[in-house]
Amino acid sequence: MSIQAQTRPVSDRPARPAPDRALRRAGRIGGGTLTFVLLIIAAVFVLLPLFWLLSTAFKTPAAAFALPPKWISKPTTGNFSTLLTGQFGHSILNSVIVAVASTAVALLLGIPAGYSFARAPVRGGRIINSWFILAYVAPPAIFIIPLYIIYQHLNLLDTYYGLVLAYETGLLPFTVWLMRVYFADVPRELDEAAWIDGCSKMRALWRVVLPAAWPGITTVGLLVGLASWGEYFGAAILTGQRTQTAPVAVYSYVGTVTSNWGELAAAGLIVVVPALVATIAVQRGFVSGLTFGAVKQ
């Protein structure tokens, strides 16, 4: 570090030395215009379905099907009021309950375990590690379908407990794994200093280590929350009338005889917006979380 600082005199900075400019040019592929054209094409592709959701959600049934598409029609909130007063309102509540409960359970059990994994030599750690990876990458069908059979016998089908438990098969290993990465970034000296000052292990974790690992915790919370909020496969199999979550309810609007794209889009939008808002609110560390902390932001 210090050697580099010496070879690059501070006085050069305002003048922008030549290697720097060439370096910046080397970073991009092709000319500026081509880059822009390609990025705009990609952006149109990305924004198209989101624009469809947003515009159709506020259209009357007739306008929703109109071709050519009506860009500016009288927006109506009718779709939302129909949805929210009907069964869909109940489904959103179910989704909130399941997402909050799944996230809470994952963090409550996963944070202490991740801390322990980061700090203490765990006997059989490699085996536990591999098991966690297997649990996370295994297709949900591996767990969900036997659970469906088990739940039939235990009367756990169409219950919140059953669904949350099924979600933890993937979410809990993910949480432990990621929390371990984040705790490993917190210097050990921090806990040790707190212990020397007379803190109990619990107090040191609560007062010193957790605040230091807070960005990691919010990231994990966001990712786990997003995953359980939008989950479809398990919910489609394990829920029924009573605990049907919003994504499953969205599907029930597809292809029915009285199909109304306005309501369908509004339902989709209601699933999308909270996730978007939560991501924008937390944002930091999103990428490092996605990659198990392997890629720093």
Partner: peptide, 16 residues
Amino acid sequence: IFLLPLTVAGIASAIS
């Protein structure tokens, strides 16, 4: 813009 799809649930992109 390219961060947006990461937050969108599979079911929502499917219906759109």
